[in-house]
Simulated scan of single mutants.
Amino acid sequence: MSTPDERPRPAYGEYATPEEQRARMQHAPPASPPAPAQPGPVVPAPGAPAARGHLIDRIVTVALLAYGAFVVVSTVFELSDFTAFADAWMKTMGITGSFTTTPQSQAWATAGVIVFAIGWIVTALISWRVMARGKRAWWIPLVGAVVSWIVLTICLTIPLVADPAVIHWFDQQTAR
C-alpha cells in the first residue's frame, strides 16, 4: 500500500512534468511517417479573393462586352430615326420608293432597341457573375449577341416587310 504522502506510481506519464514529457518524446521510437499529401483541388484561403480565372478569358470577355456596348449605343442612335434607317435599307436592297412611316413601325424599332439593350445588360451581368466564380465566360457575350440580334432583327423585319414598297418588290421578285 502507499502512504498518504506518496502518490501512486504514474502510469503512462500522466504525472510527468512537461520537461519529463519532452525528454521522453526525444527518446521514443519515431512514429510511422505521415502519408504523403494527395494533390487535390486548390481551395482559396478564407478571406482570399475568389479564383481569378484565366486572364486571357477575362480580357476577351471584357473586350466582347465593350464592343457589344458600342454596338448597342450606335444601334440606338441609328434606329432613333427608323424612317431614315428603313429608306437606307430599301436603297441597299434595290427597292424603289420610300418607306411609309407609321406609328407602329417606330414602336417596333423602339421595342427592338429596348430588347437589344436589355439583352446586353443581361449578358454583362451573367458574364461578370461567371467570371467572379473563376469560370470561363468568353462565350457568354457571343451567345448574348446572337440572341439579341435575332430578337432585334425580328422587331425590325415586321415593319419593313409590311411596307407597301417592300411588298411590291417581293411580288416582283416572285413573279420572275
Score class of each variant (00 low, 15 high):
residue 136 R to P: 12
residue 38 Q to E: 15
residue 21 Q to N: 07
residue 7 R to A: 11
residue 21 Q to H: 05
residue 67 Y to K: 01
residue 40 G to V: 07
residue 44 P to M: 15
residue 156 L to T: 02
residue 120 W to C: 02
residue 150 I to M: 10
residue 134 G to T: 13
residue 13 G to H: 04
residue 28 A to F: 06
residue 108 W to M: 11
residue 22 R to H: 03
residue 2 S to T: 10
residue 84 A to R: 01
residue 31 A to W: 01
residue 15 Y to S: 11
residue 126 I to E: 05
residue 5 D to S: 13
residue 139 W to F: 12
residue 155 C to T: 15
residue 92 T to K: 10
residue 46 P to F: 10
residue 80 S to Q: 09
residue 66 A to I: 08
residue 28 A to L: 06
residue 162 A to V: 04
residue 82 F to P: 04
residue 41 P to V: 10
residue 75 T to D: 02
residue 39 P to G: 09
residue 105 S to A: 15
residue 48 A to V: 15
residue 75 T to H: 00
residue 13 G to N: 05
residue 8 P to N: 14
residue 117 A to C: 01
residue 139 W to D: 03
residue 55 L to F: 14
residue 6 E to Q: 08
residue 78 E to L: 09
residue 111 A to R: 11
residue 64 L to A: 14
residue 11 A to E: 14
residue 150 I to R: 02
residue 173 Q to M: 14
residue 19 E to H: 05
residue 51 A to H: 13
residue 92 T to S: 12
residue 141 P to C: 10
residue 161 V to L: 12
residue 167 I to F: 14
residue 164 P to E: 04
residue 63 A to I: 03
residue 151 V to K: 14
residue 129 R to N: 12
residue 93 M to G: 11
residue 92 T to Q: 14
residue 146 V to P: 11
residue 101 T to V: 06
residue 17 T to K: 07
residue 124 A to E: 02
residue 152 L to P: 03
residue 94 G to I: 05
residue 56 I to C: 00
residue 100 T to F: 04
residue 79 L to F: 08
residue 29 P to A: 09
residue 170 F to G: 13
residue 113 V to T: 12
residue 22 R to D: 07
residue 174 T to P: 00
residue 172 Q to C: 03
residue 126 I to T: 14
residue 156 L to Y: 05
residue 23 A to Y: 01
residue 149 W to D: 09
residue 42 V to M: 15
residue 60 V to C: 02
residue 69 A to F: 09
residue 7 R to C: 01
residue 174 T to C: 06
residue 84 A to E: 01
residue 37 A to Y: 05
residue 34 P to R: 13
residue 79 L to C: 01
residue 161 V to F: 09
residue 136 R to I: 15
residue 50 A to Y: 08
residue 152 L to F: 12
residue 174 T to Q: 10
residue 50 A to P: 02
residue 62 V to K: 00
residue 55 L to A: 14
residue 106 Q to R: 13
residue 164 P to Y: 05
residue 60 V to I: 09
residue 97 G to K: 02
residue 3 T to Y: 15
residue 94 G to F: 02
residue 30 P to T: 07
residue 88 A to R: 01
residue 26 Q to L: 03
residue 84 A to Q: 02
residue 6 E to W: 00
residue 33 P to V: 11
residue 129 R to A: 12
residue 13 G to Y: 05
residue 122 V to K: 06
residue 175 A to R: 05
residue 52 R to M: 14
residue 98 S to D: 10
residue 132 A to Q: 13
residue 77 F to K: 04
residue 175 A to E: 10
residue 53 G to L: 13
residue 69 A to Y: 07
residue 69 A to C: 07
residue 2 S to D: 08
residue 135 K to F: 14
residue 5 D to A: 11
residue 6 E to T: 04
residue 12 Y to K: 12
residue 69 A to G: 07
residue 165 A to R: 00
residue 98 S to V: 11
residue 20 E to L: 06
residue 31 A to Y: 01
residue 14 E to C: 15
residue 40 G to D: 11
residue 102 T to N: 00
residue 165 A to F: 01
residue 9 R to C: 13
residue 80 S to V: 10
residue 21 Q to V: 13
residue 7 R to G: 06
residue 87 D to K: 04
residue 172 Q to Y: 02
residue 41 P to W: 10
residue 130 V to H: 03
residue 40 G to T: 08
residue 17 T to P: 03
residue 128 W to N: 09
residue 115 V to S: 13
